[in-house]
Design a protein around this nucleic acid. Structure first.
Lengths: 270, 270
DNA sequence: TCAAAAGTGTTTAGATTACACCCATGT
DNA sequence: ACATGGGTGTAATCTAAACACTTTTGA
């Protein structure tokens, strides 16, 4: 834009930015997406994708744009989770950053560094390099938030590939919550949950191939970046009234489902 | 300060503010604290307490300061819950606001309007006057957040007076969640929860006086504006090892407590 | 002695856990 | 045929909901 223009105000103002903690899952390990900074400060160091808010965009739009520009990731599930405003958190001056969480399947993206980023790479979530700014703190809070979220909403599903096995999902939930669950109970719970639709089977594998599932599209409604608030969310309606999808509730060995199950919520609070 | 000084930057900047949704409970109804604006814009209209962030304070400090200056409320439980950044949300220009939740017992405060506020008053949470800016939206999100929070953390306890009856607590939980619970089950659950300590009884009442309780101080640790993360939180330790407080778990009619109960979490998800 | 709200005990439906077992595949 | 992980059935345990009943106060 205009490089010589300046902007003058009666009171000092901080700068507003967004930083995004992008979680990616590959069926085995939870990763975090980092960029190598191409400009000062902290040039050459790893950092979270993010950047300054423009005057004609909301902070959500800012997060989405920066993510796209710096890493080529687009269309991800995004959710604001905290604000960091320590006075000296940025050597350039007063910068207040709004932290976002993004959840994607690693398989969905080919990373392409751009803009202020000279590289963009996935790191296993607990093997991170030294980070610029207070990004370590931001990531820690992001992990905490993800743990909280998983107990309330089926957000983890965003981390899975289009088609996935229940074992993959279990590994994911276990790394996030830090607990272990009985393989067999976990399986039954999910198969009967009405959240998933079977869709083919694994190829190779050295053992019996697992059934692959996809998430019933009605389960999430991202229009508001939130779950289960649409009228069409079958998993959320107490009584679907009409005929049920494949997994007929009543046909299941005569056992009834828990309320939590029927509602498709509170899934991963084991 | 210096009234003629100006501040010049190379890029345009938004202003950062905080707004606080203060919830107050009086044993019967949930209230929200509003101020009458004493300055333009929206002069004379009701609004949330809040204001611009200064350069030498964090956004949390800003929220606390504005709350004190405009309403004289101090020492409340405060928690950031959302950021509002719509481009035209403030007629004065681009203002991004960080929304906070505050939880207090109405009895603890004598309101005293000050600063930009000409009046400060409590309103029943579902009988609010027309509000300035997008404050209606902020309050709605605040209520949603409170509902989410209550299922995860025992935050409601902050809304109660030092000493309270279980009936008061039940009314509170019911207005927040919008559900009704069996009085007797609710009672037992809480009495056996290990969260409360009996402390005298109600006076007058027209019927059998209720036992009053106070919250065991170990239950919350506000140092980080968060619960149950201190080493001293007895309710959170899986096995307190030593001797238990009054409410000995094993002595309770031989019935064991649920994990949720023992941990003192997930209390109000009925 | 009655109304009104506090508080206790017990039953039962149903949800979760633990675990034995069978199945399908590659080597 | 055996190792490996996928998937099913079921008994035992635990939890939460429903509700009858007793207690304590003021009028």
């Amino acid at each position: 834009m205009n490089t010589s223009a300046t902007y003058t105000y009666k009171h000092p103002r901080a700068t507003i930015a967004s930083d995004i903690v992008v979680f990616g899952y590959d069926g085995y390990q939870l990763h975090i997406l980092l960029i190598e900074r191409g400009v000062e400060p902290y040039k050459g160091m790893w950092a979270l994708p993010g950047g300054f808010m423009l005057m004609d965009e909301t902070i959500e739009e800012c997060a989405r744009r920066e993510l796209r520009e710096e890493t080529s990731v687009s269309g991800a599930y995004l959710r604001q989770f905290d604000v960091f405003s320590d006075i000296h958190r940025d050597p350039r001056g007063r910068v207040v950053t709004v932290a976002f969480l993004a959840l994607v399947s690693k398989a969905d993206y080919h990373l392409l560094a751009g803009d202020d980023a000279s590289r963009a790479e996935w790191f296993v979530h607990d093997e991170l390099p030294p980070l610029a700014f207070d990004h370590n703190k931001i990531i820690n809070e992001g992990l905490k938030h993800l743990r909280d979220l998983i107990a309330t909403r089926p957000v983890v599903l965003h981390l899975l590939d289009k088609r996935f096995s229940i074992a993959e999902l279990q590994r994911l939930v276990e790394t996030i919550t830090g607990e272990e669950y009985d393989r067999r109970n976990f399986q039954r719970r999910l198969i009967h949950s009405n959240l998933l639709r079977p869709e083919g089977t694994e190829s190779d594998s050295g053992s019996r191939p697992a059934t692959l599932y996809s998430v019933r599209p009605e389960v999430y409604d991202d229009s508001d970046d939130d779950f289960c608030e649409s009228q069409n969310c079958m998993s959320c309606k107490p009584e679907p009234k009409g005929s049920l999808p494949d997994n007929d509730i009543e046909s299941m060995q005569g056992k009834r489902l828990s309320r939590a199950m029927r509602e498709g919520l509170n899934f991963f609070k084991f």
